[in-house]
């Protein structure tokens, strides 16, 4: 009780500062962010997660290559993840297929692990109080943690995309590609759209990241926070599949995830994309502020 009081009081006291001190503090925040980033990305757990994500496009690429090596198509009906039928024409489509395959589960699960671990993991290891002893303030620490999680979102998505692009370039031809609307675009624009899609996918994960961070402030057990976040993710994914619940589905954070495919239409169909990004912003604002409310008022006992 008294600890929580102490820090919050100190934060309010030190907030109004001279501009000089402020610039110093901003540098310090970046330092905190940098150290958080290196701590996160040096963990074996993080590297293992990224390794698994990088392996998915390799698996998909080799499977499609073997399946089509006898000259046959990928089979009738166009089942499987989105864009899979086009991979044999153009390796760039492996990027989209890999993202479509990892977005529903692998990527958010990895985010859930990192976000759930953010606060609760520190509390669990007994290092949270040391972080708070430094005059950074809780709000700043929380922002740093969220920024680190977002950086992981971006890195994880880019790992999938780059791995897929490499595998696609090695196994399949590259070149001009046909959008799903049937028009042709050049390789350069195709790569640009691939990058844009990777960014949209990373942005699609901000909602889950904020949710995970909020859960992480609720408990002192890192494992519990991760399990809860991933459990919520699975629950939401199931709810999104039940047709009778169509009334609430547009408000589920995962509902518009696959709208990134609309970027491959020509002209791009923006409606669902903007809905997706707006929804992610709302989730980030709601759960981010809830995490802030919880974390700044919490007793830190570990």
């Amino acid at each position: 009780m008294s600890q929580a009081e102490d820090t919050s009081v100190r934060v309010t006291e030190t907030r109004p500062t001279a501009p000089a001190a402020r610039s110093v503090r901003r540098l310090w925040t970046l330092g905190l962010f940098r150290s958080e980033l290196t701590t996160t990305f040096r963990r074996w757990r993080t590297l293992a997660l990224l390794g698994v994500l990088a392996a998915v496009p390799v698996l998909v690429g080799i499977a499609v290559k073997i399946e089509t090596s006898d000259g046959g198509g990928t089979g009738p009906g166009g089942g499987g993840p989105a864009f899979i039928a086009q991979i044999t024409n153009n390796g760039l489509f492996l990027v989209f297929t890999a993202l479509a395959a990892t977005l529903p589960f692998f990527l958010p699960m990895a985010i859930g692990v990192i976000a759930g671990d953010a606060i609760a993991g520190e509390a669990n290891a007994g290092t949270l109080r040391y972080l708070l002893v430094a005059p950074a303030g809780r709000t700043r620490l929380l922002l740093t943690k969220y920024a680190t999680t977002m950086a992981f979102c971006l890195v994880a998505t880019l790992v999938v995309a780059v791995s897929a692009l490499t595998v696609g370039a090695l196994l399949f031809p590259l070149g001009d590609l046909t959008t799903i609307s049937g028009t042709r675009i050049g390789m350069g624009e195709g790569l640009l759209r691939a990058l844009l899609i990777a960014l949209v996918v990373a942005a699609s994960l901000t909602g889950v990241a904020a949710l995970g961070l909020f859960v992480s402030t609720l408990t002192n057990s890192g494992i519990a926070a991760m399990a809860t976040t991933v459990g919520l993710l699975i629950t939401v994914q199931i709810l999104d599949q039940i047709p009778q619940l169509h009334a609430i589905q547009p408000y589920l954070f995962s509902h518009y995830w696959l709208s990134f495919a609309d970027l491959m239409r020509d002209p791009v169909y923006w409606d669902d994309l903007t809905r997706n990004l707006g929804l992610q912003a709302v989730y980030a604002a709601v759960f981010g502020s809830a995490a802030w409310a919880r974390f700044t008022a919490k007793d830190i006992t570990a």
Partner: peptide, 27 residues
């Protein structure tokens, strides 16, 4: 005319004498 499906599209295109229909889901 294009029918927008999830992550795929079905287009019927008429350009003069040519009529094409393209289903991107099954390629």
């Amino acid at each position: 005319l294009s029918v927008l499906d999830d992550a795929s599209e079905y287009s019927v295109i008429r350009n003069g004498d040519e009529v094409w229909a393209y289903d991107s889901a099954s390629n």
